[in-house]
């Protein structure tokens, strides 16, 4: 008997034993944890997680405690992908091939500070899974803008009078340019889709990247109870489309949601409180354009047959 709201995959995965434990230091309503719990349930106990400076580096607990339940390595901000590649190399040298090496990094450690290490590891097709939980700013240092902060959003370094003028960096296209075997965007509001992508990534080898849209009630100035509602609206308004890219060339939109009003998404977040109607229209136009670009890539024939 299944009463699960989302589907059989979600049901079967969520009833596996929790690897991650409680008592961690995340804010109430943190979007990292539900994703991380499922990620670990999919990848299992034979997993090592490497984390640069980011929210989760704090959330996990002060040394020698750790909530994550698997071996956990802190590394310098700019080195997550390189450190993970090193852990993988060490396992390979010792003849232990069956341990999953996962990077868990924020958007700062991925889009900005850790970018060269990420690019290098991707280019070398290191056999790791890189999970970026993207809460769209440097949250644990005090909500400073990152290159993942979306157009028009408030942060402490993009104040209301001068909200972010640049759009979110298109990390998917950049990673596709590295021709990595797998790249996927995920959202906690669509767990069935997310788990399918985790399973797919687990079944592959080489450089796999998961880009998770991570609700941050603290940094987005939203009610913690809306954590999932925000994630859902981000997908529905196409502010964060769900898609995957195989081998850098085969694009697929995996969830084509019922559309929702961008205003509804903005209304429940303090970081968009300053948005004026003309700005809203501008942002809507920008998101439409991005969606069209994505749709075009997703509908392109797989081989050009030259």
């Amino acid at each position: 008997m299944t009463n699960n709201t989302f589907g059989t995959t979600t049901e079967s995965v969520m009833h596996r034993d929790d690897i991650m434990g409680p008592g961690h230091l995340a804010c109430a309503g943190c979007g990292i944890i539900p994703m991380l719990r499922l990620l670990l349930k999919v990848f299992g106990r034979r997993t090592v997680v490497v984390t640069p400076a980011c929210c989760y580096a704090v959330v996990d607990g002060p040394f020698p405690y750790s909530a994550i339940g698997v071996p956990f390595m802190h590394c310098a901000f700019e080195t997550a992908a390189a450190s993970a590649a090193g852990v993988r190399a060490a396992f390979d040298m010792r003849g232990i091939p069956d341990v999953n090496v996962i990077v868990l990094a924020g958007d700062g450690g991925t889009f900005d500070i850790g970018f060269q290490a990420l690019s290098g590891a991707a280019e070398r097709n290191e056999n790791i899974v890189y999970v970026c939980y993207d809460n769209e700013a440097y949250m644990n240092t005090g909500i400073q803008r990152s290159s993942a902060t979306p157009l028009g959003a408030w942060t402490t370094t993009t104040p209301e009078q001068a909200p972010k003028a640049e759009s979110k960096k298109d990390i998917g296209t950049i990673m596709a340019g590295h021709r990595i075997p797998y790249f996927a965007t995920t959202s906690m509001a669509y767990p069935e889709d997310m788990l399918a992508k985790f399973e797919k990534a687990k079944a592959m080898s080489g450089f796999r990247m998961i880009h998770y849209h991570c609700s941050c009630p603290t940094g987005w100035k939203a009610d913690s109870r809306d954590m999932i509602g925000l994630a859902r609206l981000a997908v529905q308004t196409r502010a964060f489309p769900l898609y995957e890219i195989l081998d850098g060339e085969s694009w697929q939109i995996t969830v084509d949601p019922e559309p929702a009003d961008l205003q509804e998404y903005f209304r429940i977040q303090g970081r968009y409180r300053h948005i004026q109607p003309n700005q809203l229209t501008e942002i809507e136009r920008h998101l439409d354009k991005e969606w069209k670009t994505l749709s075009r890539k997703a509908s392109a024939p797989e081989s050009s047959g030259r």
Partner: peptide, 25 residues
């Protein structure tokens, strides 16, 4: 913290730290 106790015992990989479940958040 006691080496080899807690959730890490059965991972078979590294045994070093203790869990956070003592923390009544």
């Amino acid at each position: 913290p006691v080496a080899g106790k807690g959730a890490f015992q059965d991972s078979g990989v590294v045994k070093s730290v203790a869990s956070m479940d003592w923390n009544p958040t």
